[in-house]
Amino acid sequence: MNKLKNILYPSAVMVGLLALWWIVVEQTQSLIFPTPLEVFTGMLQLAQDGSLWKHIGASLLRVATGFIMAVLIGVPMGLWMGRVEGVYRTLNPLFQILRPISPIAWIPLTILWFGVGNTSPVFLIFLASVFPLIVQTSAGVHTIEQRYLRAAENFGVSRAVLLRQVIFPAVLPEILVGMRVGLGVAWLVVVAAEMIAPVSGLGYLIIDSRNAGSRYDLVIGVMIIIGLIGLLLDTGMRRLERLKSIRWRYGR
């Protein structure tokens, strides 16, 4: 019954919003803002000619590349900062200064460093996701109860085994939280990142649709696609949190 409610209630809200959208457009007789049917028709045309899937694939590839780079750098950095107090005191102020800076603010420097191409949006996506991973991972190491570490050291456990069998499993739930936050932020900035991309990606498609005849049906359609993909990515990360090796840390 609860599962049915979890499906019916959100669906009812979505249907209500679509109906309200349609009524408002029809009542105002807007010549610019499209109806839901016009948005659906425009996106169907893009899907049929294959261009929609090309842009989705380009965006997902850039986000995946930047996010994987962030995981490969952010998680080890967070573990190092969490284990070595001197490193934490040295680097944490720097990361806390850089973390609040919007990735959009980096666009001029990114173009200067990497030019206009695939490297620039990947770098922006990397910046968007690496800091949540570093902060969350280091915070997770600091929450480990010291008695577990002391017990392992009393048994003569090496540093490598301690990291692999004690610290990493204990921090894994926090790492997943950082990954979830980082991936959400990375997908959030995909539009801004792809403003400087070549000729592909959902962000580019929004700008191109606006400039090519003010196709607001495609603009809104792509915005909806971005939201739906973001929901799917978040759902996937939530499912990872339910793995047996991770879910012990959460109440539900």
Rank of each mutant, 00 (worst) to 15 (best):
R180T: 11
F168K: 03
V177I: 15
D217N: 07
P198E: 13
S158G: 12
V199G: 13
Q165W: 05
T235D: 04
G184Y: 06
A186D: 04
A193N: 11
G230Q: 11
V171F: 06
M223I: 07
I206Y: 02
P169Y: 00
R159I: 05
L231R: 10
M179I: 03
S209L: 02
R215E: 14
I229V: 15
I220N: 09
L172V: 00
G203I: 07
A192H: 09
G182L: 02
M179H: 07
T235S: 09
L232V: 10
L218E: 02
P169S: 00
G230W: 05
A170E: 12
L233P: 13
V157P: 05
V190H: 06
L231T: 08
P198K: 15
S158F: 08
N211Y: 15
I167R: 02
V185I: 14
V190Y: 01
R239M: 09
L183W: 11
I207V: 14
I207A: 09
A170S: 15
S158C: 09
W187C: 02
I246T: 15
L233D: 14
I175H: 06
V190T: 10
I175Q: 06
S214H: 08
V199F: 12
K244G: 00
L228E: 06
G221C: 05
V181C: 03
I167D: 11
I207Y: 07
G230H: 07
L231N: 04
I167V: 15
I196L: 13
V219N: 00
V189K: 00
I206C: 01
V191T: 06
E194Y: 02
R247Q: 15
P169R: 04
D217L: 04
L163M: 15
L205P: 03
L176C: 08
G236D: 15
E153W: 03
M223P: 00
V219L: 01
S158P: 05
N154E: 06
S200C: 11
I207P: 04
L233V: 13
L183I: 13
G184W: 08
T235Q: 07
R247G: 08
Q165E: 12
P169Q: 02
P198F: 15
V199Q: 13
G227Q: 01
V171C: 09
A160F: 14
L188T: 07
D217S: 06
G213S: 11
V219Q: 00
D234W: 10
A170W: 12
E174I: 04
V199Y: 09
M179L: 10
S200D: 14
L233G: 12
P173V: 01
I224H: 00
R215P: 13
A197E: 12
V222P: 05
F168M: 08
I229F: 11
A192Q: 09
L243M: 15
M179V: 01
L243P: 07
A186H: 01
L162Y: 05
D208Y: 12
L232D: 03
V166Q: 02
I224M: 02
Y204W: 15
G156F: 01
V191R: 00
A186W: 01
V181G: 01
L231D: 03
Q165R: 11
A170M: 14
L176E: 03
R239F: 06
I207R: 10
R238T: 08
R180M: 11
I175N: 04
